[in-house]
Structures are given as C-alpha cells and as structure tokens.
Simulated scan of single mutants.
Amino acid sequence: MIDTRLPLYQQLRDDFLHRIQTGEWSPDAALPSENELCESLGVAVGTVRKALDVLVAEGVLVRQQGRGTFLRRASFDASLFRFFRHEDREGRRRVPDSHILSRRGLQADAGLADLLRLAPGEPVLGLNRLRRIDGEVVLVEEIRLPATRFALLADLPIEEFGPLLYPLYERLCGQIVTSARESLAVATANAEIAAHLGIALGSPIVEIERLALDCTGQPIEWRRSWGRGDRFRYRVDIR
C-alpha cells in the first residue's frame, strides 16, 4: 500500500516498484515513456522523472540511450567467476555447467531466518549443486530459498534446472534478482568438499557467501560457494 503522506515522487517510486514486483511491467521490455506515465497518472513530467531518477540511483532501473528505461540486471555469474580462473582445456573462459545433487524441504534456523527475513522455522527449499567444466568440478554450492516464493521449484524435474538459476527464478516463479551482497573468506576443505573438488582433505579453499535481493531490497536467495584455493584470484582497482 502506498503511503500518501510521502511526497508525490516518492509515492510514484513505490508504485513503480510495485508494478515491477507484480509483473505488470515486463523485465524484458522498456518501461512506459515519461510522457506516457505523465498522461496515465495525471502528474507533471518532473515528478515522474524524479521518481525514475530515484530508482536509477538505487540500482533498480537503468536508462539505455535511444532505447528507454529498463529493469537493471547485474551479471551475477560474471561477478562470481571473476574470483576464479575457469577455463576449458583450450584456455577459453567458460561458464560452468550445473548439476543438482539434492533438493529438499527444510526449516529456517535462526541464522538463515535472519538473513532471509523469515520467522525461525519457516519452510525453505534447499539445493546443493556442483558446477563443472568438461566434467571437472570447479565449485560446490549450497542454496537456500524461501519455500513460499519458490514453490514451483519443489517439483520441477532436476534436468530442467539448467546451468543458471536466476533466469529460472524469473521465468517460473516471477522472482527477479536485481542486486546481491557477497563476502569472501578462506577456509579448509572438509571431506565432502575435498571429494567433490578432487583435492586433499584440509586443502585451502575460498568460500563466497551471497545474499541475493529483489528490487525492493528483500532477500530471496542465500548461497555459499566453495572453490579451490589454487584457482582463486582477487583484483581490485584503487583510484
């Protein structure tokens, strides 16, 4: 519900977010033009532009010269793989294939509930998967999703998940990931991770934890990925 006590541009910003969240505005098409919004809403162009400017500044929308305004999508797999050297036998960079190891219904413990903004004990869908290149496991992952938002994934045949999850979330469940927070840590491989990665028990590994958010800032996915320490690299540009 829109808070009518807010300035009009802020009310429009909230209304636009609602339209995106409910699917009224397709993520694959440009939003209506400023003039179209002014005409349909009966407000000044400056007010519409200010509301859109706020969503652009918040990273929800992006303006594309000559094309219009679109829902912003970050390249999340590119983000993850900037940390690891993932190449095939010919030295070409590759996005790994995905293999779901397990899928099960769980209850959120206190820590996960806090991250996903759920009540402790609420149902979550748990996925464990491997990422492979030419049959070699390069990442081990565990993923947790609010069960109510992702109910259609509970019975989806495993072979239909595909290599990338975010397009699947959007296509089947209407859940659009627009931003994420990542943290990195150094750890040592336990027996299960070592077996999957083909390394010795206790070998150094890199752990990447990600919390994915929708356009309103609501967390909709938590995941933890582990990769071999000898394939990890970190780069930052300091200006």
Results as ranks from 00 to 15, higher is better:
G23H: 14
G23E: 04
E24L: 15
E24G: 02
E24P: 03
E24S: 07
E24Y: 10
E24I: 13
E24T: 13
W25M: 14
W25D: 10
W25Q: 06
S26C: 06
S26H: 08
P27Q: 01
P27L: 03
P27H: 05
D28K: 07
D28L: 13
D28H: 12
D28Q: 13
A29G: 01
A29M: 01
A29F: 01
A30T: 07
A30Q: 03
A30V: 09
L31Q: 08
P32Q: 12
P32D: 10
S33A: 14
S33E: 10
E34T: 04
N35P: 04
E36T: 01
E36M: 03
E36D: 05
E36A: 11
L37E: 12
L37N: 07
C38M: 08
C38P: 03
C38Q: 13
C38S: 13
S40R: 15
S40T: 14
S40H: 09
S40W: 11
L41Y: 13
L41C: 02
V43H: 02
V43N: 10
V43M: 01
V43F: 07
A44Y: 11
A44L: 01
A44Q: 14
A44T: 02
V45R: 15
V45A: 07
V45G: 15
G46A: 03
G46E: 14
T47M: 01
T47E: 06
V48K: 00
V48Q: 07
V48I: 12
R49L: 06
A51S: 14
A51G: 02
L52S: 02
L52Q: 08
L52W: 04
V54M: 05
L55P: 03
L55V: 02
V56R: 14
V56G: 12
